[in-house]
């Protein structure tokens, strides 16, 4: 499930704010330098980060399941538009997407929801927007959970899902029950004193040695790349 995975790696330990800054930096590189010459070595960075974090690449593979097929879309589109060079551009765009997805997921896997929330607020994202972002993150695994439950309950009553058919009977109850649970979650948070309009950012965020090193390196890297 797309959730924080507790761990002790440097990637886990780095401060949530520093990680968000780096994520933005990496995404900037990916968005501005979309050539194979940049993206290939960059993919190595992504792999290295996963390796350091101790999180297996199987994790995102499993979490997104068949959604990974979406990566083929840019290749097909490019091939349609431009049969001669389409494959090249297609592969570049897919690799680009792949890196964006993997890095964003890594950030979620290695940052506690609470720290993420506090970091966003610290970086001047409006409280309510940050809250919505974080709730929707928490919403993903809830949806996965609900999906399994509904599947089981429908199967128990003899409903068969056919491969490659749209699972309409699933979607409606899924949306309904997930929304209901998200509402309950918000109720549970507020009735324990969480004020989504004034998120307090005092405690957890404390810069450590790794963070200072990373913060020191960041401007240098920005300078080197751009």
């Amino acid at each position: 499930m797309i959730l924080y995975i507790p761990g002790n790696s440097p990637v886990h330990k780095a401060d949530a704010r520093v990680k968000i800054l780096y994520l933005v930096f990496f995404l900037l590189i990916l968005f501005t330098k979309d050539t194979l010459g940049v993206i290939l070595p960059f993919s190595l960075v992504t792999l290295l980060l996963y390796y350091t974090s101790g999180i297996s690449l199987l994790r995102p593979v499993r979490d997104l399941g068949s959604s990974w097929l979406l990566l083929l879309v840019p290749i097909l589109l490019h091939l349609l538009v431009n049969p001669s060079l389409g494959l090249y551009y297609g592969v570049v765009s897919s690799l680009f997407l792949l890196n964006v997805i993997l890095l964003s997921l890594l950030n979620v896997y290695t940052t506690e929801i609470k720290s993420l929330l506090q970091a966003l607020v610290f970086l001047k994202v409006p409280s309510e927007l940050a809250f919505m972002l974080v709730i929707s993150l928490r919403f993903l695994p809830l949806m996965q959970e609900q999906l399994t439950k509904i599947r089981v309950s429908q199967a128990l009553r003899g409903y068969e899902t056919k491969p490659f058919s749209l699972p309409i009977p699933l979607i409606v109850p899924l949306m309904h029950s997930s929304l209901k649970r998200a509402m309950q979650l918000a109720i549970s948070l507020e009735s324990r004193g969480f004020d989504s309009e004034h998120i307090n950012i005092a405690m957890e965020l404390q810069l450590s040695k790794i963070d200072y090193v990373l913060l020191f390196l960041l401007p240098l890297m920005v300078f080197a790349v751009f």
Binding site: L3, Y4, P6, E112, I113, K114, R138, R181, Q184, L185, I187, S188, L189, E190, S191, R192, G193, F194, D195
Partner: peptide, 30 residues
């Protein structure tokens, strides 16, 4: 609600929808 929560606590009917944290102790600390 967050103001009232300083005086009033509630345990919802479905614990699955109440529990938010990813570690037991964080839930109590919240």
């Amino acid at each position: 609600v967050s103001e009232i929560s300083r005086k009033v606590g509630i345990v919802l009917q479905d614990p699955n929808s109440q529990i938010f944290s990813l570690r037991v102790r964080d839930e109590v600390a919240f």
